[in-house]
Design a protein around this nucleic acid. Structure first.
Length: 841
DNA sequence: GGGGTGTGGTAG
DNA sequence: ATCGCTACCACACCCC
């Protein structure tokens, strides 16, 4: 159990719980298979077959498992546990269809995989024929080189039979239908793999189907709300699709949660918490300050997503209900993001797969996400809270801490809390739980005791004097900051509750085991003391100070094939990153690229549909010469990191996700995009079209510029190298760029076609030092995607690389350049005159 | 010892 | 189908 099974190389702690879950599940299935089928062998036709089911199959996966194991083969659907696998999958059973073509290109283009891909009909028909049929005859259509063209025909499954055998099993299982009813084509009695799960009732069918239908209908009826319903469009699963990132974020609950705090902060103005000195300094303060009563309310919706969704489906109020994408299908890898307490009682847990949830609770009703409803419901809460105090720390869409200061605000706090609760409920039909204490810590723990399953009335007040006693009974897991890892460390010290810590351990023990900060924090917490700085991020989860980073992550649905795919994807990530910078008025100067690479031992397709599976993470940070909000520069930075650091380690088809993290944020000071002399910026559409009026189009200029450039590069080939830093002449050529082009021969001209650089030294007359403040110039090769126009000024040139680049690539006219790139006029004169000369000569 | 980087953990 | 995000902190390690 210990750290070994947590190997960091699988992609960090985020999915550890999932790993455990898969491990358990694997054990369970294996045991069931062993037990149930040991004496039930029908034949040996699948001897040596180790099969894995991938995606959706016409024949449902229980059937496939059953047939394969009953006929001499083995399953390896969940291979986390056997990792690194002793068993090698020999057959991947997949019918594909709706999963998007991208993911299959790999199989198609690289038939070197260690396993063969077959359709589920191979299993069924082999059994029916009593022998193992040729796998090649059952290749999913999309793997044939004609590719997508054959998709449609494939939908009528039992077509052109390679065998003179009628289509054996299959009944169509409507989506939402469960493991179909009983008749077996080979006459065997039906055995459900999962029928020992919870109740002895046979698994789902009707109920689950009904749930699916209900969800669908509800989504349809939702109308105004942005419910996420099954999209009819198919191409969207391809991460290279320009709309993919947007679509993904529109549907992602984690994106919704992750971005909520910024949204709410933009919407309201909250006051900062009144700082409270740590207890150690209390004596130093004047009595009046020390004596001021301060209380904290921790307010938190119960089963937020589910409660909100139930407003649209009151008929399910007394049923187990969960929120997830998709419908209730028994082999779904959709994640349960929220569920009501009825469902929790039956073993459904947040974050588990639909398949697992249905095993535990076959009658589970599944409702879609109503993100707009979540947002508006959340608003009601915050508006209520504002009435109590403006000192509010939003923690999430369903959760906030309120600080009450002074006798007035603190008077009758319990009464106020109850009123708040009732009022919010009357407006939203959703309940909140409220914890009250003299620190955010106590309030928070109290709130967890106020939850419906704890049998409280929804408000728990911990009298300040009782804090210490109250905490004694609290399990350590309930302390904020103690997650699975910290908990395990504490358990290794023999501690599960605060009481254990107090009695058996010293602060030194904790510091040794947990580290300096967490050690003393937990020690304090166990004694009822919140030693975090009130109002700090650790105390509330919501930073009070300036935002320090912005990140854009997509680790789902990423299946790329070509370098162009990657460039497109990077472009959409960078565009989003830039958009967020703009929205919040920031510039960034450091771009970190985090890449998820499929772990070498991980199956090509993970258990979760289009998920990232087990991954290695590669992280690299790149500091820019100056702050920017430009999508293009961000993209360049990402691309540079890819070229320099990642490309040699990770084939493109093994990318499973990536993150752009922007650091070194600065407030954008000059809001004006245009320097004084420029006319008002024209929208792109306005400038592209006519061409008749206005200054000369840049395209000519651009073409000439590039033609010229290439010629010069060719002329000078051979003398590679040292160029940066040394003195250079006007219009000298940067050969390092050419060298780079050779390093990446497979790379087609991407969106930024010119892979050459021009290093042109121009003497920018009175450019004024400010524009050239960079003391050192990074190697030019890092910017080889740019058209580098060096304007020599001392040793600095960099900013004009990108400036010129954007001018060339993003602008149509000289005025556009001037407008979009508000640099020092003198410098611009130099750049433009250089460009002109090159273009016209 | 001050700063930067990469990794890991946590919360919602 | 399915939508595995975001932001922060702490720490170890490196460099100067």
């Amino acid at each position: 159990m210990a750290s070994g099974s947590y190997s960091t190389e699988f992609g960090g702690g985020l999915w550890r719980g999932h790993g455990d879950y898969m491990r358990d599940k694997n054990d369970k299935i294996k045991a069931q298979l062993d037990q149930r089928y040991a004496g039930d062998m029908k034949s040996n036709i699948f001897q040596g077959v180790i099969a894995r089911i991938d995606g959706h199959t016409e024949l449902n996966d229980f059937e496939i498992k059953r047939l394969i194991t009953q006929h001499g083969g083995q399953m390896e659907q969940y291979d986390v546990r056997m990792f690194p696998s002793e068993k090698r999958v020999t057959h991947l059973v997949a019918d594909n269809l709706a999963m998007g073509n991208q993911r299959w290109r790999h199989y198609r283009d690289k038939p070197t995989s260690k396993f063969v891909v077959v359709k589920s009909s191979w299993v069924a028909e082999s059994v029916a024929a009593g022998r193992r049929l040729r796998e090649a005859d059952f290749k999913p259509d999309i793997l044939h080189h004609q590719g997508q063209g054959s998709l449609k025909g494939f939908l009528q499954l039992p077509k052109a039979q390679p065998q003179p055998q009628p289509p054996p099993v299959v009944k169509d299982n409507p989506p939402g239908g469960a493991a179909g009813g009983g008749v077996e084509e080979d006459g065997s009695a039906r055995i459900e793999i999962d029928d020992d799960a919870a109740p002895p009732v046979p698994p789902p069918p009707a109920a689950a189907a009904a749930a699916g239908a209900g969800a669908g209908a509800g989504a349809g009826a939702a109308g105004a709300s942005r419910a996420v319903k099954p999209r009819p469009s198919r191409g969207r699963l391809d991460a290279t699709d320009p709309g993919f990132v947007d679509n993904f974020f529109k549907s992602s609950r984690l994106h919704f949660i992750g971005t909520f705090r910024n949204r709410v902060k933009a919407k309201y103005t909250f006051d900062a918490f009144v700082p409270v000195p740590p207890p150690s300094q209390l004596s130093l303060l004047s009595m009046s300050t020390a004596r001021r009563t301060i209380l904290y309310l921790h307010v938190d919706f119960d089963a937020f997503f589910t409660s909100v969704a139930l407003r649209r489906h009151p008929e399910f109020r007394n049923e187990p209900v969960a929120i997830a994408h998709g419908s209730a299908r028994p082999n779904s890898s959709s994640e349960i993001s929220s569920c009501n307490y009825i469902a929790r009682q039956r073993g459904v847990t947040k974050g588990s797969f639909m398949s697992s949830a249905l095993e535990k609770c076959p009658e589970l009703k599944v409702l879609p996400y109503y993100f707009d409803d979540f947002e508006s419901t959340s608003e009601v809460l915050f508006e209520h809270l504002m009435q109590l105090s403006r000192r509010i720390q939003p923690l999430s869409c369903d959760e906030a801490v309120v600080q009450l200061v002074g006798d007035d605000e603190c008077a009758d706090v319990q009464q106020k809390a109850k009123q708040l609760r009732d009022s919010v409920h009357s407006k939203t039909e959703c309940w909140v739980s409220i914890g009250i204490g003299d620190s955010p810590l106590i309030a928070r723990v109290a709130a967890s005791y106020a939850k419906p399953d704890k049998g409280s009335s929804g408000v728990v007040l911990v009298e300040p004097k009782q804090s210490k006693d109250f905490m004694a009974t609290v399990p350590l897991k309930a302390i904020p900051g103690i997650g699975p890892v910290m908990l395990e460390k504490l358990q290794s010290l023999g501690c599960n509750t605060c009481e254990d810590v107090r009695r058996q351990r010293t602060e030194t023990d904790l510091v040794t085991t947990l580290g300096k900060v967490m050690g003393s924090r937990v020690w304090a917490a166990a004694h009822g003391i919140d030693n975090r700085q009130i109002g700090s991020t650790e105390a509330s989860g919501a930073g009070t100070g300036a935002q320090k980073s912005i990140s854009v992550a997509v680790n789902w649905g990423v299946r790329l094939s070509t370098d162009t795919d990657l460039d497109k994807f990077l472009a959409s990530i960078a565009a989003d990153a830039s958009k967020r910078l703009e929205e919040r008025g920031f510039l960034t100067q450091a771009v970190t690229f985090k890449l998820m690479q499929r772990h070498p031992e991980a199956p090509v397709e993970p258990p979760k549909f289009l998920g990232h599976g087990m991954c290695n993470e590669l992280t690299k940070r790149h500091v820019l010469p100056e702050s920017t909000a430009s999508a293009h520069r961000i993209q360049m930075a990402l691309r540079t990191i890819w070229d320099d650091e990642f490309a040699k380690k990770c084939p493109i088809h093994e990318i499973r996700g990536l993150t752009a993290m922007l650091g070194k944020l600065k407030r954008k000071t000059s809001p004006a995009p245009a320097p004084a002399p420029a006319p008002a910026p024209a929208p792109a559409a306005a400038r592209g079209g006519g061409g008749g009026r206005g200054p000369p189009m840049l395209t000519d200029l651009q073409e000439g510029f590039l033609r010229n450039t290439r010629r010069k590069v060719n002329m000078q080939q051979g003398s590679k190298g040292a160029h940066i830093g040394g003195p250079r002449d006007v219009e000298s050529i940067d050969l390092a760029a050419e060298e780079d082009a050779e390093c990446a021969p497979a790379v087609p001209p991407s969106a930024f076609s010119p892979r050459v650089s021009v290093a042109a030294g121009a003497t920018a007359g009175g450019s004024g030092g400010a524009a050239c403040a960079q003391p050192s110039v990074p190697p030019a090769r890092r910017y080889h995607h740019l058209v580098d126009v060096y304007v020599k000024q001392g040793s600095s040139a960099l900013r004009f690389q990108t400036a010129a680049e954007e001018a060339i690539m993003g602008c149509e006219t000289l005025d556009d350049i001037r407008r979009d790139m508000p640099y020092d006029d003198d410098v611009w004169r130099a750049v433009l005159s250089l460009a002109k000369r090159l273009g016209r000569s």
